[in-house]
Amino acid sequence: MTDGADESNTSWFQVGARPGGVRVRLGSDAAGLLRALMEQLLDLVGDAPDDASGLAAFGIAESAERPDDPALARLFPDGYRDDDAAADEFRRFTELGLRDAKRETARAVLDVLDTADDELTAELDEAGAVGWMRAVNDVRLVIGTRLDIDEDGDNRPDLDPADPRAALYAFYDWLTAFQSALVYALE
């Protein structure tokens, strides 16, 4: 399967099924964009706690509160909707591990991107491809939350191309198309 494979455009990508996984090809701009977005995701998710002693060594926080940043709150949502105490307890037991998992998937994408300077051709096994899908979705969740994306795309403002949000919409659409190609190839 081929998607967005106009190679005169350096943001092109190709995703194809292969036995046991997928093959991903990215134009130089697409690889650079994905790298920049994964690095920003890592910055947003933040570092693991320095002090991994005590409960934190087991992935359990002393305490946990819903993040104030809406994008972080979307990456780490409440596990209970109408029970604040249960939601806090769920977060205390799960959020450190989820942050680790999101860092790992983003870093795994960066590791593959590091194997090429310009255009990228990578063979991913199934687990690797699922990791890419998840990391790409994490970035979509962050950008979509920042842009207040709605279901039908009806609230997209008519933006001047110089507006920074215009670039974010373009990134979001690119990530959506790329993720869709990964899903299709994995199926």
Partner: peptide
């Protein structure tokens, strides 16, 4: 927890 790792909005 697994669904959150995939970015779905899930609750118990």
């Amino acid at each position: 927890e697994v669904l959150h790792s995939y970015g779905l909005w899930a609750t118990v």
